[in-house]
Design a protein around this nucleic acid. Structure first.
Lengths: 281, 281
DNA sequence: CCTAAAATTCTAATATACCGGACATGTATC
DNA sequence: GATACATGTCCGGTATATTAGAATTTTAGG
């Protein structure tokens, strides 16, 4: 429906949207940038970006960094993010557990969640070995690429799973396509086993272990994971799984997730469940 | 002054400003709230707040929480805040050090900074003792109330210090006024001693220990602190101070703060491990 | 049930935020 | 010194975001 002639479809973007676009852009880039550079890379009017950057600086949402007119995410964002994390018992408990796990195993321990239609690492404690394995917190990754993906979706029906995962996400990093049916089968098995482990689809030399943390209603809110060098992971498989399972059950215990509380009508938590998915980059 | 007739000085507030006002308000309140409640408490038009809250929800900057139309800071803020903290070597190193300090001493360890004209706790690791002493990260506190306050300002001249601190902040929590001259003298002594310790102005039964982390230019970027029950703090004074001083000097070492590197503004290599492998569980 | 208050959605006007584009200022390259 | 490009500032017009207030729905009592 491209109208060849006429309609000068003037579209302005709301300041708020643009501002968050800038913040998200800097988060992905992971380095301070100049306003001019930001403007051209996100394809926004320069004058708008300059104005917004100044507003964000005034609010402490951006800070000058690198001393050359470059800006990066500001300290106030850090305080807001901390307040978010403090609010949730789950995150506080996981913080403790990740610490213990990484000390017990010397491997990198993670807490992972469903974010929209993707998987992401929410918390991480790096292992103590010389070559640490690490990932970016908040980076979105296709669910089939990850061990946790099997567990995070295991409470959904087959069709719900297929509706949730974008078809292209079944193509694994090495270019091979995973059959959706196979993925679902793995998810079912993971649910009944109470864990999932495989060698990473992303990095060939690493072994991943994931165990679920369930809410009372059976939804897998999050997973605890260990990421180990392959050899090492295989040698310690049982020990690692035991550590993970113990940690997960202690968290469930602590948060009262352990005992079923079916009586109360749960007020439809949005987090963790399938969120109404809105389209944004 | 009040114009009886006339000028209808219509003032609109920019969406961005109000949006951040909402976020900050929720941060201070530290609990989920309804849009309506937010609107009336911050004195903003209801229709505006409803619209902004919806925008913020779409961006993930707010999340529904408590299942009753109440909203609180969203997960995306957490990811942005994490990205901020990852960017700075100082914060990553402090995270490790706070952990070690809290394990060595079993006391609450903090990293504190100057935020505008106030003191604030930027990072914290709670102690292991049954009655933990803790504080809210990001909460602004008058500088004279804190041990770190002496160190954070010690690079300034007398007049700069007096200009920076709001006069009313010299009134301590118990209502007694601290003479500015006395505060400055303490700051000078702290600078030459390399630490400051006193029993808290805020909480009477606690002893505070603070040591500075200096940039190459001699500015005190941050402090490391221990907060202990009074009795306990006095008994272990030397040991605690030694732990803190060691930790601070290791951080300086690691970040190259130790040797003077004037003039150069190097694009730092990330300290710590080799970040070669990128894998998710 | 009814009534009142609280919470939310809708609507239309208008104050202004966003944007295009001109201008100014480096700072490299030849 | 001329050219090109990157960076930042400024300004006026207009598309639209903000707002007051009305309308609607939900909740709370009694």
């Amino acid at each position: 429906m491209a109208d060849t002639a006429g309609e000068p479809v003037m579209r302005r973007t709301r300041g708020l949207d643009r501002a968050f676009e800038i913040l998200e852009f800097l988060r992905v880039k992971r380095r301070p940038m100049r306003p001019n550079e930001i403007a051209s890379e996100i394809g926004a009017p320069r004058s708008s970006v300059y104005e917004l950057v100044n507003l964000l600086l005034n609010h402490g949402m951006l800070d000058y960094e690198g001393g050359d007119g470059r800006v990066y995410l500001g300290r106030r964002l850090y305080f807001l993010g901390t307040a978010y994390a403090e609010q949730f018992d789950l995150m506080r408990e996981c913080d403790r557990m990740l610490l213990r796990l990484s000390e017990e195993t010397r491997e990198t321990a993670q807490m992972c969640v469903l974010e929209g239609r993707k998987y992401t690492v929410a918390m991480m404690r790096e292992g103590l070995r010389p070559f640490r394995i690490s990932a970016s917190i908040g980076e979105l990754v296709p669910l089939p690429w990850t061990a946790s993906g099997r567990l995070l979706l295991s409470h959904l029906s087959d069709t719900q799973i297929l509706d949730l995962i974008p078809p292209e996400d079944f193509v694994l990093p090495r270019g091979i396509r995973l059959e959706p049916g196979e993925f679902i089968a793995q998810a079912r098995k993971a649910r009944s086993d109470g864990f999932f482990t495989f060698n990473s689809e992303i990095e060939n030399f690493t072994q991943c272990f994931a165990v679920p943390i369930y809410q009372p209603d059976g939804i897998c809110t999050a997973t605890l994971c260990l990421v180990a060098p392959r050899e090492d992971g295989l040698n310690n498989r049982d020990r690692y799984l035991k550590s993970l399972l113990t940690a997960a059950s202690e968290i469930s215990e602590k948060l009262g997730y352990g005992r079923e509380t079916p009586g109360q009508d749960l007020p439809r938590e949005r987090t963790g469940g399938v969120r109404a998915i809105d389209t944004r980059g």
